[in-house]
Nucleic acid binder design. Structure first.
Length: 570
RNA sequence: GCGGCUGUAGCUCAGCGGAUUAGAGCAUCGGUCUACGGAACCGAGGGUCGGGGGUUCGAAUCCCUCCAGCCGCACCA
């Protein structure tokens, strides 16, 4: 089906084109009417004509028969009101559409999304939360839109830290490995302490780096042990969190080791490589350091080791050449902005990143505590993801107990997990990802307000209607006749799902979808209050059931695209 | 110093390709229904959109400047 928005846009576009080809109608949903087109204002300015006059003229050209009525409002807005028959027809089409009006991409793209990327040797902590949650929401959204998503979990699994860990493992003995690195964090910290305080240990580690990078068999065997252990731990965390990343998506720094020499050689052959202070660098134009001098991207360090710039460049090549990416997305914190700008610039210079490939650093802000400082535990340590989720589950479970639900223990625990994940993910996704946000478990897990659990509850309420219905209800071709304001208001909300979804995707801003879903939930509860469903009769009852069905499906799909569960009961 | 980001109701946030009375949630106060669905709904108060200047018929939104805070600026990723 063609979405309501697209239908209106197409017709307005024809009218705008008459005055200026390609002029954007700037069509938006409106509080004053159903939709409004603001594009007249800027068009009038370009044309040097009075806006109202331009608006009148466009109105004359616009063929909106049977779709909407238009009036010029204020200085020159076009306020559009859908004609009931059209609205009702769109609704009926929506009812029969499993995708709720969202089109499948006509030209599916291969989108490589780099996200999560924890350090393999450490336990996952809040610092990994946003990349993981946002990246997963984007991955799911792209998949739903019909694109081919390749998730890349670019874990830190190489270099000096690993040499250090290997030496530590040797000290402990590797016969009972699961025991010795059972607690990853402790293991890492022990190694770190030795590295910092023990010069012989440090020396051994240095030597071990060389052995690692040159592919020494025994070293690699030990490395494997640590990495495998860590990855299975990571996999558990992703499962607990309900994140779609799989073990196969883990393609860490180590993967690119064999490609690094070619990166250097090819940059050199392209005449881009410059030696500076013993390091091999590329100086992309436009980057300077604090003294105003050209800033290098260091590809190979003076000790001949490779920095992360080298592996990032190798990854670009691999993703473009071997994965045939049309889009590269890097969901990584904003502190790395300059690094990525430089990597992308160098990749473009080297011809590894053709113009046709969209390449974007998807940044995000920090997670803050309620004191507005970086989120830390009471004792000042970084908070582990597992304990964060654990606390959220506990709170959710307590809340469920209070509600005195008839759930048995395992079912209640299962539900608590779904609620906890929703609370944490929604809080992260519902504000503009570029801003910092305050992590306040109490607020985010509340069942009232703009929270994940509230949306889940809105969905569950709808599902309970169908449960109480007793019989199976299937959407059939209905004729709608929306007479109550709240019905119409809800219907308009349902019709607006495609543009909300597409805006979130186009701007890589999941919060736009969150804002939409919360608004829909509010329309829904207002409808609930005003319109009895089960106690109404005949065609009215069918119509209201259909609205409930659509709302439930919209919430369910919307949440699932964000990576949030929509339980049937709460 | 250079570059980037942030500053909107008591609190947490939307809105920022300029435009019709600046929105929401929480909190506060006041209501609603014989609550099949109620963890609901309705309403009210509360904002010189950090300050100042500019562009414009019109600025929270664009430009400049100042203030406050955060981040990055060559061999750790």
């Amino acid at each position: 089906m063609t979405s309501t928005y697209d239908t209106l846009l197409a017709r307005l576009q024809l009218a705008f084109d008459v005055l200026e080809s390609g002029a954007d109608p700037v069509l938006r949903t409106s509080e004053r009417s159903d939709y409004q087109a603001n594009g007249v204002m800027s068009l009038a300015k370009r044309l040097g004509r009075p806006p109202r006059e331009v608006a009148e003229e466009i109105m004359g050209h616009a063929d909106l028969d049977g779709v909407a009525t238009v009036e010029v409002a204020g200085p020159g807005f076009l306020n559009l009101t859908l004609i009931p028959a059209f609205l009702e027809r769109q609704l009926a089409a929506l009812l029969g559409d499993a995708r709720l009006g969202i089109a499948t991409a006509p030209e599916p793209k291969t989108v490589v999304i780099d996200y999560s990327a924890p350090n393999v040797a450490k336990e996952m902590h809040v610092g990994n939360l946003r990349s993981t949650v946002i990246g997963d929401a984007l991955a799911r959204s792209y998949r739903f839109a019909g694109h081919h998503v390749v998730a890349r979990n670019h874990v830190g699994d190489w270099g000096t830290p690993f040499a250090m860990l290997i030496e530590h493992l040797l000290d402990l003995g590797d016969d009972d490995v699961s025991l010795s690195i059972g607690d990853l964090d402790a293991f890492y910290k022990e190694a770190r302490v030795k590295f910092d305080s023990d010069d012989t240990f440090k020396e051994r580690s240095r030597g071990r780096v060389v052995a690692l990078q040159s592919g020494d068999a025994e070293t690699l065997r030990l490395w494997r042990i640590i990495v495998d252990q860590s990855i299975s731990y990571l996999d558990q965390v992703y499962q607990d969190l309900g994140v779609s990343l799989e073990i196969a998506d883990v393609v860490g720094e180590s993967y690119y080791n064999d490609m690094l020499e070619n990166v250097v050689a090819d940059l050199d052959a392209a005449g881009l490589l410059v030696e500076s202070g013993g390091a091999l660098c590329v100086f992309p134009p436009g980057f300077t350091n604090r003294d105003g001098e050209a800033l290098p991207l260091i590809v190979q360090k003076s000790d001949e080791g490779f920095g992360y710039a080298a592996s990032d460049l190798a990854a670009v090549r691999d993703r473009v050449d071997n994965l045939h990416a049309d889009e590269l997305l890097y969901v990584v914190g904003v502190p790395q902005a300059q690094h990525f700008e430089m990597v992308f610039a160098v990749a473009r210079l080297a011809g590894w990143l053709p113009d046709r490939v969209r390449c974007e650093h998807v940044t995000f802000g920090n997670v803050l505590g309620t004191d507005r400082k970086m989120f830390k535990s009471r004792s000042g340590e970084t908070v582990k993801l597992a304990s964060l989720l654990g606390e959220a589950i506990e709170r959710a479970d307590e809340a469920l107990k209070e509600r005195n639900t008839d759930l048995d223990e395992p079912a209640r625990m299962d539900l608590a997990v779904q609620i906890a994940r929703a609370a944490i993910k929604y809080a992260d996704l519902s504000t503009d990802r570029q801003h910092d946000y305050v992590f306040d478990l109490e607020r985010m897990i509340a069942f009232e307000g703009d929270t994940g659990p509230y949306l889940q509850y809105a969905h569950a309420r709808l599902r309970s209607i169908f449960r109480r219905l007793g019989e199976t209800w299937a959407p059939s071709s209905l004729t709608f006749a929306l007479e109550v304001d709240q019905e119409r208001h809800l219907a308009l909300g349902l019709l607006a799902f495609p543009e909300a979804f597409e805006a979130a995707l186009a701007h890589l801003q999941p919060h736009r979808l969150c804002v939409y879903l919360f608004d829909l939930a509010q329309r829904l509860t207002a409808f609930y209050d005003a319109c009895p469903v089960l106690s109404s009769e005949g065609a009215l009852r069918e119509q209201r059931l259909a609205l409930c069905d659509l709302a439930a499906r919209t919430l369910s799909v919307g949440l699932s695209v964000l990576g949030i569960d929509a339980p049937e009961k709460m």
